[in-house]
Amino acid sequence: MTSSPTRPGVSRWWRALSIVLLLVLSIGLTATISLYVQLQAHIGHLQSKLSQLPQIRQLAVLMDQDQKPAMLVTYDPVAKQLQLERLNAVKEGREDSMQLWAMRPHQAPQSLGVVESKFKAVAMSATTEQLQGATSLAISVENKGGVPNEQGPRLPWLFQGALVNKAL
């Protein structure tokens, strides 16, 4: 009688170990995918918050006649706003208005508007085109309500300073 050769089988322990390793690998892969999706969502959220922050692209420190800082002007192209902050105690009179002007080489000054408030910080709407090519900003004292662009400013300038493009 001849005995048939026995087939070597796989141990139950090896089978159990391979199933456990497959489960661990599946859980690890699922966790990795989940973390990747969460990371992408977090990056998107941070990018949207960053786009809402003021993006100061241009600024000017306007100086008085004694070359002391009188007003800080910053421009946020996303909000399309000029932010003016008074650095001294000079205020316009009851019948006067301060008017902001953009100055370009070899061109007449262009009015950016009248500083309406006597508060320390004031926001004025402005477009990028209004500041395009401007090399400096200045403030003149005008009659109440300001003057039209065609009339031009009353000189001498109350405050004046270079407009600087901020590096990104």
Rank of each mutant, 00 (worst) to 15 (best):
M1D: 07
T2I: 10
S3D: 15
S4V: 13
P5F: 10
R7N: 14
P8K: 06
P8C: 04
V10T: 12
S11L: 03
S11I: 02
W14Y: 03
L17R: 03
L17I: 06
L17Y: 04
S18C: 06
I19T: 04
L21P: 04
L22E: 05
L22T: 01
L23P: 14
L23F: 14
L23Y: 15
L23A: 15
L23H: 13
V24F: 01
L25S: 15
L25R: 12
S26F: 04
S26P: 01
S26Q: 07
S26Y: 02
I27Q: 12
G28Y: 06
L29C: 11
L29F: 11
T32A: 15
I33E: 12
S34K: 04
L35D: 13
Y36R: 05
Y36M: 04
V37P: 00
Q38T: 09
Q38G: 11
L39Y: 06
H42R: 11
I43W: 01
G44A: 14
H45Y: 07
H45D: 03
H45P: 02
L46A: 08
Q47T: 10
L50T: 11
S51A: 13
Q52Y: 15
P54A: 15
I56C: 06
R57P: 11
R57L: 12
L59D: 10
L59W: 12
M63F: 10
Q65H: 13
D66A: 14
D66H: 14
Q67G: 07
Q67E: 07
K68Y: 09
P69I: 09
P69A: 12
A70S: 11
A70P: 00
V73A: 10
Y75K: 01
Y75L: 00
P77V: 00
V78T: 01
K80D: 07
Q81S: 15
Q83I: 08
L87P: 00
V90W: 14
V90F: 13
K91R: 13
E92D: 15
E95L: 12
S97I: 01
S97W: 05
M98I: 06
Q99L: 03
L100N: 00
L100H: 03
L100Q: 00
A102L: 10
M103W: 02
M103P: 00
M103I: 04
R104L: 04
R104C: 04
Q107E: 15
P109L: 14
P109K: 15
L112T: 12
V114Q: 10
E116D: 09
E116P: 03
K118L: 11
F119T: 13
V122L: 08
V122T: 13
A126G: 04
A126Q: 01
A126R: 01
T128D: 09
T128L: 11
Q132M: 09
Q132C: 04
A134C: 06
S140G: 12
S140F: 10
S140L: 12
V141K: 11
N143W: 00
G145A: 08
G146I: 09
V147A: 11
P148I: 07
N149V: 06
N149I: 04
E150I: 11
E150D: 10
P153D: 07
R154M: 08
R154Q: 12
L155I: 03
P156R: 00
L158G: 06
Q160A: 05
A167S: 15
A167W: 05
L168T: 03
L168Q: 08
